[in-house]
């Protein structure tokens, strides 16, 4: 029989998008302190996909375990507990003041280094974070590790030592497959994320969270964080709010009023 698989789900804590998000004027980094923090929305789908995969592996007799991996400040513990209460088994939390201000490439390097310290067969991430909206960390981790990147998946199947996904494309989808270990990113709507049960919430309190620093990963602190970041924010300003234009009530002439407006702007 094949051995049990280690599934690692990447969970990022992000500022709640309902709140007004800000940058720190002193160093142009994201203000993670002043607003409510939540699990990156799409990462809930990644957690669910990991849990379903584990359940299927247990069902088939092979077995599996789900580890949550988060790179983020101390308060990210809240998000990790939530992920554990959904049913993940344990967590690794990379928390180090030196990481603050890291960009996507640096974050991916930290995650790749963290993965090298644990056993992993399948890494599942969300496709995109609501704060960066970059959608590149998963592919960068695959690049850093030199393993298959099965990104933008709307369907995932694992069989034998191979993972196959339906990757969303402009025109439909690509069926993409690679041998394990592999890094997968999933899109919204791939499944229905479960709500933590009361039992799950209680159980999460005693699940292990392994907190590690940059030094624990064997990384040089100067290679991460704002000072060493390959990309830098030079300046920022609040965009002027969009001025509301003209609004008319339709009295049977609404359509022609829009057409006149579009013609005036040479849009038709």
């Amino acid at each position: 029989m094949e051995r049990a698989l280690n599934i690692v789900v990447l969970v990022k804590q992000v500022p709640d998008t309902e709140a007004e998000r800000k940058l720190n004027p002193s160093d142009n980094t994201l203000d993670r302190a002043s607003v409510d923090a939540v699990i990156n929305y799409i990462d809930e789908f990644a957690i669910e996909e990991g849990l379903q995969l584990k359940e299927a592996l247990i069902e088939s007799g092979q077995g599996g375990e789900v580890t949550i991996l988060t790179v983020g400040p101390e308060r990210a513990t809240e998000s990790i507990r939530k992920a554990l209460s959904m049913g993940a088994d344990k967590a690794v939390h990379i928390s180090d003041e030196a990481i603050r201000g890291s960009d996507a490439v640096q974050t991916a390097k930290v995650i790749a280094a963290a993965l090298k310290t644990i056993e992993y067969d399948i890494v599942i991430a969300g496709s995109e974070a609501t704060d960066s909206r970059a959608a590149i960390v998963p592919t960068l981790i695959a690049e850093a590790l030199g393993v298959a990147g099965l990104t933008q998946a709307r369907k995932v199947t694992v069989e034998g030592g191979t993972a196959t996904v339906e990757r969303v494309t402009d025109t439909g989808y690509d069926k993409v497959s690679g041998s394990l270990p592999a890094v997968i990113s999933v899109v919204e709507k791939i499944n229905e994320p479960r709500y933590p049960s009361f039992k799950g919430i209680m159980a999460a309190k005693s699940k292990p969270i392994d907190v590690k620093s940059v030094a624990d990963l064997g990384l040089d602190a100067a290679s991460v964080g704002l000072a060493g970041a390959p990309t830098q924010v030079v300046s920022f300003e609040n965009a002027p709010p969009r001025a509301a234009g003209q609004t008319v009530k339709d009295e049977g002439d609404g359509a022609s009023a829009i057409a006149d407006f579009l013609a005036g702007k040479k849009l038709i």
């Binding site: 007004e20 998000r21 800000k22 940058l23 142009n28 970041a229 390959p230 990309t231 830098q232 924010v233 030079v234 300046s235 920022f236 300003e237 609040n238 965009a239």
Partner: peptide, 9 residues
């Protein structure tokens, strides 16, 4: 909401 100027260092 925010416009940023960024550079590659």
């Amino acid at each position: 909401a925010i416009t940023v100027q960024s550079k590659v260092a």
